[in-house]
Write a protein that binds this DNA or RNA. Structure first.
Lengths: 195, 195, 195, 195
DNA sequence: TATGAATGAGTCTTCATTCAT
DNA sequence: TATGAATGAAGACTCATTCAT
């Protein structure tokens, strides 16, 4: 059974967008990669913009829903945050191309980019909520949850991408150990009293 | 005495590139913003690419040299890292436009983007060296310095940009407190023994 | 049924290139002359260079094949050469524009120009072979066939073009008589013994 | 003693124009080759066009005057024509670059190109006059002198250039033998009676 | 549903020429 | 005389989008 044209286009679009970025990628590229006539893309998607948006939406949802569904109510904030860190690292390993897209195309003032940041924001809220819960339950230090959630997201993202784009083997577990350490106890051996 | 055309172009280029990104920015935009004929840009820079590269080089150097010159040999690793965190936060506040450029244009496989990542890497080495020193002096936990340095860079960058692009007032000191906490003692109140 | 866009472009390109030369001719000119959008040209030809090359290839082939197909094996070398002279003169009369292109654009060190000279060379070989045959059969004097074939080609070409560009009526038969005389018996009344 | 800027420019212009042709050659090229500032060229020549025209004028004059001064009144038409053939062949060998310019830039409808053809015409008249004299004195067959003079000019030019551009050693004497044969007795062994 | 030829607005880049010094 | 920074018009080429089939 042949794959639907639609899904061929979808996959080709991810490949091409992650390789070249939104602006440099052409509809011809995508059509060629999907083995489909250019017109066919326009039959399924109104525009390049829409195709791209659709793609990113799907991706962020996949990340958010994946994490969200694993966050059980009876976990402690620490357990929850640990899970988030681990899941995000796995996701980056698995959807490397998509993650490149995310980091490339989220900064700027275009409508599309604002939209992207909102999507990412919707994921960050997950982290933020856990941080807030941790503070409320006095498990975590008192910090600004928004700063910390964006910081954590950035820490994991950049560290992961740094490995992936350096074409080194991606050892998710090792990265997880370091990221967990950073997140929970920081670098100092003597702990907080020093500060 | 009027500013040299060269520096007019330089400033205009930063403005336009940060607003629109490399691909969407046009040489006409930049020329108009600089109040200069388009040919004048090409008199000073061989191409759009070269202008852009020059600009980013200058910026990363400014960041790296600024930090490097303040790192004194008799500081402890903790003091050094604290200084780096603070300086980077200040830099992002001061050169917001340039920082947007950096985060937008560093991901991808084009020659230019590889070049950018190398430049960023040259800054990350500063952090990495301090982390290594801290581990050697047993001030810091044993971690992979490369993971941690890219993680720290990402944490600060994304957190800072998140505020700057959200058009909120940029309170560098508050951000510094949170980032320092994350860096040194992490979120957990009970410290490392829990882990 | 309307002519294919492709052939409209082809004809327009001949017109414009012969009028203005390769460098001065613009793709806008050609598009306008062909009543076609500029992009359409690029849909069919990868570049100005390619369009031009294609055009010249076709032209030289037309000349060479036209002559070649009329050269019958049982002709004497003299008859063959006579036929070549006549055919080339007719060709110049008929494809004046193309011939101007040929003479304009074949001299220089650019890739394209080397290519052109090769094409012309492929035509000269026809002449050269006949000259060689004539020498072998002792109908012709002993001469360097390469010198003579390029000389004959130049003689006919420049003489023809000289008339065509002088905007005089092109009397192919009269020109043929003179060129035949030059080719076979030369100017001297007393013939070779004088030399 | 340093060469005058003027003559530096002159020589540089010949080099560059013959290498790249009128359109592709730039004033920057010429200035660089002449080790002179671009403005300096404009101090001596009103425009690119004028510089070029001046150059070609000088060259054609050199050819024409060289030949003309050697044509003595008491020579027979045959001797005169022989001398012309020899001189032109020598000239092509000596001023190869200039001759390429001549053949490249003489065809077309631009003012400059009409001008060029006039200059070449002024040289052809020399040949034409000799042919006419030869016919009048019944040394030469009755032919159209204009056809024959342009034909001879083309024969020699193309044959010479064919060797020069093929990067073969230029044996002027051998070429002269072949061109003289063509000019005076033609290819046929049996002479004119056959025709 | 699917195609691919056609479009034309938009971009980077070049270069002859000018002019203040 | 000589310079070289500055100009801006012009040209090759790209590519998202449309539409007749």
């Amino acid at each position: 059974m042949r794959k639907s044209k639609m899904s061929l286009i979808f996959q080709a679009a991810i490949d091409v967008f992650s390789e070249k970025g939104f602006d440099k990628a052409t509809m011809d590229d995508i059509a060629a990669r999907a083995n489909v006539a250019k017109g066919t893309i326009y039959y399924h998607f109104k525009s390049k913009e829409e195709l791209f948006l659709f793609l990113v939406e799907e991706g962020v949802e996949l990340l958010r829903d994946g994490v969200e569904s694993k966050l059980l109510p009876d976990m402690t904030p620490t357990e929850k945050l640990e899970l988030i860190v681990r899941e995000q690292i796995n996701f980056f390993g698995q959807y490397r191309d998509f993650c490149v897209i995310l980091l490339r195309e989220s900064w700027g003032a275009e409508e599309r980019q604002l939209e992207f940041r909102k999507m990412i924001r919707s994921y960050m809220y997950l982290i933020e909520a856990v941080v807030q819960e941790g503070i409320a339950k006095e498990e975590f230090h008192f910090v600004n949850p928004e700063n910390v959630s964006s910081g954590l997201f950035g820490m994991i993202s950049i560290a992961a991408l740094h490995i992936l784009l350096g074409h080194k083997p991606y050892d998710g577990d090792a990265l997880f150990q370091d990221m967990r350490r950073m997140t929970f106890s920081g670098l100092l051996k003597q702990g907080e009293d020093k500060l």
